[in-house]
C-alpha cells in the first residue's frame, strides 16, 4: 500500500514520487513511489523508523528538494517542475516551516522573526491576525526579546507563529518538539492543534513521539521509503500499537 487518500479538499499532494540519493554502490532510494494527500484544514503526522524517508518526503512536498519521478502539488499548483525563483516565492507565500532546531535569526527580535516572511515579501501583517497569532502563541510580553533570551520551547513557539503569520496553504514541521521536554512540547503541540481546529490551518508534522502524533487528526506510517500504514484520529496507544505491529512485520524479533 503506497497510496493514501483523504477525500475532501487537498492542500498538498504527492503522486508516485521517487527520490534517489547518490549513485552506484552508495545509492540510496529514500522514497520509492510515495503517493499521499494532505487534506485542507487537517493535522497530519508522519511517523516511521529513522531513515525511512520522512524528512525527505517533507522536503519534497515543501519545495526544498526536487523529486526524481512523480509530481507534487501544493494548493493546486504543480511544484515538481518549478525553478528556484518560483519555488522561493512559493515557500515565501504559501508554505510555512518549523524545523527541529535553529529556526530563528539571532539578530532579529521575536516579533521581527515572526514577521520575517512578510517582510521578505514586503507585505504588512493583517493586524487582527497578528493579534490572534501572538495571543495564541502566548508571547505578547516576549516580543522584543532576542532568540538567545528565549527558552527552547518559546523559540519553537515563535517559529510556529512565524509559520502561521502568512496563512500559508500548508505548514511543514520536522520534529518541532524533538529538542523539547514534554511540557514545552505539549505547549507547542496544543498551539499547532488549535491553529488547525480554530483557524483551519493545514499542518504536516514529522515526529518520532507517539504522544506528539496523537495531537494529529491522522498518522501516516513510512517504512523504507514507502507508506505502509495510516491511522485516523490516533491516540498515543493506537499509534504505539501500530508501530509495534509494523516493527514485527518488517523486522521479526529473533529469539
Amino acid at each position: 500500500m503506497t497510496a493514501t487518500k483523504t477525500g475532501g479538499p487537498v492542500a498538498a499532494r504527492a503522486e508516485e514520487i521517487w527520490k534517489v540519493y547518490g549513485s552506484g554502490e552508495a545509492q540510496v532510494t529514500a522514497l520509492r513511489g510515495v503517493s499521499a494527500e494532505f487534506g485542507r484544514g487537517r493535522f497530519t503526522a508522519i511517523m516511521g523508523p529513522s531513515g525511512s524517508g520522512k524528512s525527505t518526503l517533507m522536503h519534497c512536498l515543501a519545495g526544498l528538494d526536487t523529486v526524481d519521478r512523480g509530481t507534487v502539488h501544493v494548493g493546486g499548483t504543480e511544484i515538481s517542475n518549478l525553478g528556484d525563483k518560483a519555488l522561493t516565492r512559493l515557500r515565501r507565500d504559501r508554505i510555512g516551516f518549523v524545523f527541529q532546531q535553529f529556526n530563528l535569526l539571532p539578530t532579529l527580535s521575536a516579533a521581527e522573526n515572526i514577521r520575517l516572511p512578510l517582510d521578505i515579501a514586503g507585505r504588512k501583517p493583517d493586524p487582527q491576525w497578528w493579534e490572534t497569532v501572538i495571543t495564541t502563541v502566548g508571547l505578547s510580553d516576549r516580543l522584543a526579546h532576542r532568540p538567545s533570551q528565549l527558552s527552547g520551547g518559546q523559540q519553537q513557539r515563535v517559529a510556529c507563529a512565524r509559520a502561521l503569520i502568512g496563512r500559508p496553504d500548508v505548514i511543514f514541521a520536522d520534529e518541532p518538539t524533538g529538542n523539547l521536554d514534554s511540557r514545552s512540547g505539549a505547549e507547542v503541540l496544543s498551539f499547532l492543534r488549535s491553529s488547525v481546529r480554530e483557524h483551519g490551518q493545514t499542518i504536516v508534522m514529522v515526529t518520532h513521539d507517539p504522544v506528539a502524533a496523537s495531537y494529529a487528526d491522522r498518522v501516516v506510517f513510512l517504512a523504507d521509503g514507502a507508506i505502509v500504514d495510516e491511522l485516523a484520529d490516533p491516540t498515543a496507544e493506537t499509534v504505539l500499537d501500530t508501530m509495534k505491529r509494523l516493527d514485527t512485520q518488517t523486522d521479526p524479533v529473533m529469539l
Binding site: R91, F102, P117
Partner: peptide
C-alpha cells in the same frame, strides 16, 4: 533558513 522562508537569491 532565510532561503527556506522565502528570501530569494538576489535578496
Amino acid at each position: 533558513l532565510l532561503r527556506a522562508v522565502g528570501l530569494n537569491r538576489s535578496q
